[in-house]
Design a protein around this nucleic acid. Structure first.
Ligand SMILES: [Mn+2]
Ligand SMILES: [Mn+2]
Ligand SMILES: [Zn+2]
Ligand SMILES: [Zn+2]
Lengths: 132, 132
DNA sequence: CACTTATTTAGAACCATTATAAACTAGGAC
DNA sequence: GTCCTAGTTTATAATGGTTCTAAATAAGTG
């Protein structure tokens, strides 16, 4: 299977649950954004056995730590994750509470002129809030 | 008092609690970032009477709705607010979990080329994550 | 196989935030 | 001033996403 090596190479044992979550997360045409609840629902729809909520949380955090997922900073009571781990930006539709990808070419280069002593820039993320 | 009119003009009754919270939030040289817990502590330090936690939440949300505060999107278990309601961006120091203002001149103009049908851009916020 | 360590799991705990509903208060009418 | 009403405060409970716990299970290794 195509995810076994990916997991092994990251030091994660390729368990049945992790491989199934990989299928849901990564075996798609397009990348997508999700909350844990939405992911849980997707898992229920796609697989027959049950995966406990704790495992879903554990797996998402493990994948995030390995760089296979990233968190998107947003004001919501739920944490949003992204299967698109490339550097990119987001629209956030305030009414629908939906995220939409912005390519870097949609935003243009961002040049941070200020420097903080002893700190390095890890990421630069733009959030564009949308209203009707 | 200088905050009575501000509150009245917003349709908020100038209660003792709200005026005291105004003093803590707005009667300062510099603007600042805070969580509800940090604000609660500041209130305790500055005033003698007690203000209930529910009132702190109510007031912060009322002030946010009136545009006297804004929320900062960030991945944290606590919500961060800003007394600087002008358009500006942020550094986020991942180690210290502290926000630092970036002026617009520190970032340069951001031109969002993509359009979403029927939606208007409400805000454009840049979050620059810092590591050591 | 035996053994060790990682993982899964159900359920409890945590904790920031929101809801409740009763007491209180500001402001307007008179 | 009193009376009235809508707005506000308050202690406390409820909510709900997330994390923790500790026991059961599974993976990897020899
Ligand atoms: Mn979530
Ligand atoms: Mn908070
Ligand atoms: Zn994205
Ligand atoms: Zn700020």
């Amino acid at each position: 299977m195509k995810y076994i090596d990916k997991l092994r190479n990251s030091g994660l044992r390729p368990t049945k649950q992790r491989l199934q979550i990989c299928e849901v997360l990564f075996n798609t045409e397009k990348t997508f954004h999700f909350t844990i609840n939405e992911l849980e629902q997707k898992i229920k729809d796609k697989i027959d056995n049950k995966i406990s909520l704790a495992t879903v949380y554990n797996t998402v955090h493990a994948f995030e730590k390995k760089g296979y997922l990233k968190q998107i900073p947003i004001n919501s009571n739920q944490t949003y994750f992204d299967t698109n781990v490339t550097d990119h930006h987001h629209f956030y539709d305030l009414k629908d509470q939906k995220l939409i990808d912005l390519e870097n070419s949609d935003v243009g280069p961002i040049n941070i002129k200020k420097k903080i002593n002893g700190k390095r820039i890890k990421s630069v993320e733009v959030l564009v809030k949308l209203e009707d």
